[in-house]
Design a protein around this nucleic acid. Structure first.
Lengths: 218, 218, 218, 218
DNA sequence: CATGAATGAGCTTTCATTCAT
DNA sequence: GATGAATGAAAGCTCATTCAT
């Protein structure tokens, strides 16, 4: 089992899945991610998973349930580090400079995101078409991240490291920059050669200082 | 016919569409955008368009053709201003400061994007699942925009207004920031109250100077 | 226009067909013969004929009418020599020996059959599925041929050249032998090398004397 | 279940068909034989078989597969007696005279043919339109029959019972005479009164001695 | 006369789901 | 719990036929 599969498996670990259930989940993730949820048939998933079609419906009553079973845990796991108290305390104290926080966060999440990429892709693809997913996403991810992050942002603003802007705007700008990088990197041009270290550093620099060449920076 | 429909109609204007063809296109755009391409049935499109199902296939041999007929013209129209010579000359000269160029471009494209939103949404949704669309997108949009934009970027870099970075990275950072805004604004949280002017200005400021509070800027 | 087409054209000549009608007929014959009546679409015929689909239905109200228009004249033309009085008189007198009659008839009809092969093929293929065709065939071909031929047969029987058997049996045996040859020759193994003269002669010999080696024949 | 159905069932016996599969096959045979393959719809077959339409496609992936599943076993079964060694030995020795061999063979095959008539009809109807069927027919039937029969023919030629002609020609003449009889009997004029014994005897006599009244035969 | 856009019934095939084994 | 045969609704698409131009 590859490193990536191991991580994905962790996503569902707590739920004590049987061997067959795991196979079904992996097969579904692969197919949903490659062809999209609506364009994937349950028979295809069954074949890829090596189980009977009926077995899928024994564990996940409907195809939609299967989708939700894949995407829902992602939502909680993706933001885990932001809500886990310990980690937060560390965060609050450890990084005096925003850059360092950004770097640590990107590094931390990039790794997870990269390996969970298929699941993330499914999530982003299907959110627009499934209101429950969208609400789950907003409630569990967007809001919680925002709560945590706005606290941090305010901290840095008070320290004078971040400009005065509503925290939600600050969060939006930072997050879309990071996701924009990942989208370009892994979805739009995956086959290009990428120097991940370098691009990450550039992205952080951009988030901090923008594209403009200010006299002071020279 | 609404303002939005008028603009969408321009997308397909040159091709002298009959009344029925237009109805089919609009119905398909609406459904594809709401439920996704794969989850939309041709019978549903026919009903919404008020035509017989056979009529769809008389004009677009396959369902896929219909998708391509919707997305392909968008690709050429979206970047038109970047390739139209006159516009470029204006651009090169008129805007001494990057900020002004950004503001003009965003304003110009935001309007188009907003009104073409359903079609843009379809394009972005389906690109990952249809290699031809992806290649068309890369060849017709990404490359052409980059050619035009890298020229501009180098100009501003020579004038000392933009930091030294590979033009493709500069372009990526700027474009994803803009699209990230539009995505958040129109797809993720369309029902929020937005002060478009203000957010645009903030986005521009972010692109230019980032989030960091540098001494020089005070 | 090929020799074959000329002959086929004669099939329909009396009916003063327009240019378009001819094109439709030829296209239909080609397609029906290659793919079968049911598996051929009118749009395919229209395309091959270079006319609009509506034009087909202006001349032949239904697809079935088109089939009948192709097959019906064949029925009258194929047996023409047997019913044309002049030809019959000639026949009655001219051939003292059955062999000579058979040879002349085969030669005469083989040429026609070969060139009308596509139409003949359509007729034989469709007869089992269209009762009207079958009745037309029985009434116009089978019965008329039989009337004529049974007269001849009785003549030869009286002359002691043909064994005593009911004329219909004699006719059946002779005709199926000839058609069996043509079927093997043109439909089952058309790509084999055939010495037509020789095989014709053998077929005639077979009809007359069978396969058995009788002392008297040596 | 009628006697005919029993025989048809034997055609497919080895393949351990389920009850539903049998029903589908019988329904398809009936419809294909009555209306032709292309003119028969799968929904019609499903209705006649008393199963859901989906069930047909679970067992036979395509409509064409269904056709092949009907026709292919026929090809092997029809010629079985010719390839079964025991039968051959019997044949070689038992019949001193060609007539007796012919009579035995016709009797043996006529029975089978008559009862498999619907399937045979389908085979003959569809061979011209499906190259794979045609090749199967040529490879599995024509060639194998010829191999066996040419051996027999040479034997009889050596004994001086059959005239000197290439075995393939001899085979063609004999076989088309027999099939011509069966075609006339069962397909062209099935509703006539037929004295099968008598017609068989006449056909054999024809194959052996032809229609000519030779002095020697009196 | 000729056209070809339009139709809607019907085609083959696939689908998510059920249930007896 | 697992299976996979069976289902029938619905999918994408084709068809013969009509009719306004």
């Amino acid at each position: 089992m590859s490193e990536e599969e191991l991580l994905i498996q962790q996503l569902f670990d707590e739920e004590k899945l049987t061997d067959k259930q795991k196979k079904i989940l992996f097969a579904a993730i692969e197919s949903f991610s490659e062809k999209g949820y609506a364009a994937t048939s349950t028979s295809e998933i069954a074949k890829k998973a090596g189980v009977a079609e009926g077995t899928i419906f024994r564990h996940y009553n409907t195809k939609k349930d299967l989708l939700v079973s894949i995407v829902a845990p992602l939502m909680t796991k993706l933001i885990a580090p932001f809500v886990v108290e310990d980690f937060n305390k560390v965060l609050d104290q450890q990084f005096d400079r925003v850059e360092d926080f950004l770097r640590a966060t990107i590094e931390n999440r990039r790794d997870v995101l990269k390996r969970l990429l298929p699941v993330v892709k499914i999530m982003l693809q299907e959110i627009p078409f499934h209101p429950e997913l969208r609400h789950q996403f907003i409630d569990q991810i967007a809001k919680k991240i925002f709560e945590r992050v706005s606290h941090l942002i305010k901290g840095y603003q008070e320290k004078g490291q971040i400009i005065e802007m509503p925290p939600e705007t600050v969060a939006r700008l930072a997050i879309t920059s990071i996701l924009g990088f990942l989208f370009t990197r892994y979805i739009l041009f995956p086959e290009n050669d990428w120097d991940d270290e370098l691009e990450t550093e550039r992205t952080i620099q951009f988030i901090m200082h923008g594209l403009g060449k200010t006299p002071s920076r020279e």
